[in-house]
Design a protein around this nucleic acid. Structure first.
Lengths: 188, 188
DNA sequence: GCGGGCACTTGACCTGGATCAAGAACGCTC
DNA sequence: GAGCGTTCTTGATCCAGGTCAAGTGCCCGC
């Protein structure tokens, strides 16, 4: 719960009365390694802050996984697209390691939006952050070769290599596990 | 101005007093075909609603254009990433045809956010919409072949083929103009 | 602790789409 | 309306990265 407070405080200031209303809306959810946080085809009910563990966001098409991103540390998790649109999700979220997440039900969050402008601002700021992150990824996917994408990842997120299976990272980088393996051998 | 009102009304209800404050913040900006709405390297100052014309959002890398999207009709335009982060933009926005846009300065929009929860909600809802749009694009880029991407575009946005140069559509679909041309010949 | 199945590596080969090149058909500008 | 730059087409060739296949190792459940 400390984590939830600290996270929200990074974006907005709330009064004690507001905190008293916000805090009870958040609950912990634990997932064993391999467990599904969100299922494709279902409407996403919750929005999460990661207490611990790593999750991957991906979808399947013709038997291939396509990984769009990972969440860990104190970042966001869940299928935002479905959460926001309330349409059946196209994505899966899976716990890559044992995970503890703080989650809030959509109905609760939107009630908070109605009752507190500060929380509505929190929602807006998170989305702004998500947009910026997606833009960065899109630029790199479009403009860089497989090798350059690999180099950037190693440079920027070396910890991921320890935490996540190589095939999942390969998919995140838009290449096959074989290509990823060859780049590993080649680069350094 | 009618357009601005109708657009905002699709998302939130404002009082007459609020409208009186919101309306003067919006101004028209006209761009001749080929004109630059936003420059890479500059911080985006405005957020736009398209009154008329088509614009493309793209970036350059190693002498190649990579087009991320088009705006037209009554959709949004501008470099949101830079607008939101207030960092120098990575993207260019160019008028593909003569264009008239309604724009609001960032300072004005954020002042409205401060003064009216309804406008803050408007901001959040727009971002939600943008996120969903990007998710759709990302899925298609990752999972579909060049031919399938072409087919989808023809099916979903046939009007674009009339309005925009083929090389720009090719870039938007993540292929070269040559490949695009060959698909046109092949697919009906 | 052993057996079966993933994950990873490495090699050989294949292919979708890029690149290079050369015309043809439009617009613009003067 | 002549001239020129740009866009589009079409063909020939190339190559980054995918696919297929075989072997190794290691983790996990019984």
């Amino acid at each position: 719960m400390e984590l939830v407070r600290r996270t929200i405080e990074r974006y907005v200031k709330l009064t004690d009365a507001e905190w008293a209303e916000v805090v009870p809306c958040w609950h912990t959810y634990t997932f064993a390694k391999g467990g599904r946080v969100s299922e494709a085809g279902r409407v996403e009910r919750r929005f999460y802050i990661v207490e611990s563990g790593v999750q991957r966001l991906y979808f399947e098409h013709d038997g291939n996984d396509h990984c769009l991103g990972f969440s860990y540390d104190h970042s966001w998790s869940g299928d935002f697209d479905s959460f926001v649109s309330q349409r059946p999700g196209r994505f899966q979220v899976q716990a890559v390691t044992d995970s503890v997440l703080w989650g809030i039900e959509r109905a609760d969050l939107y009630r908070l939006y109605d009752r507190m402008p500060a929380m509505e601002r929190f929602g807006r700021l998170i989305l702004e952050e998500l947009i910026a992150g997606r833009a960065t990824r899109e630029v790199e996917q479009l403009a860089l070769s497989a090798e350059e994408r690999y180099r950037r990842l190693v440079q920027r997120s070396p910890h991921l290599l320890q935490l996540v299976a190589q095939k999942d990272i390969a998919s995140y980088l838009g290449m096959t596990p074989e290509t990823f393996s060859r780049l590993r051998a080649k680069v350094r």
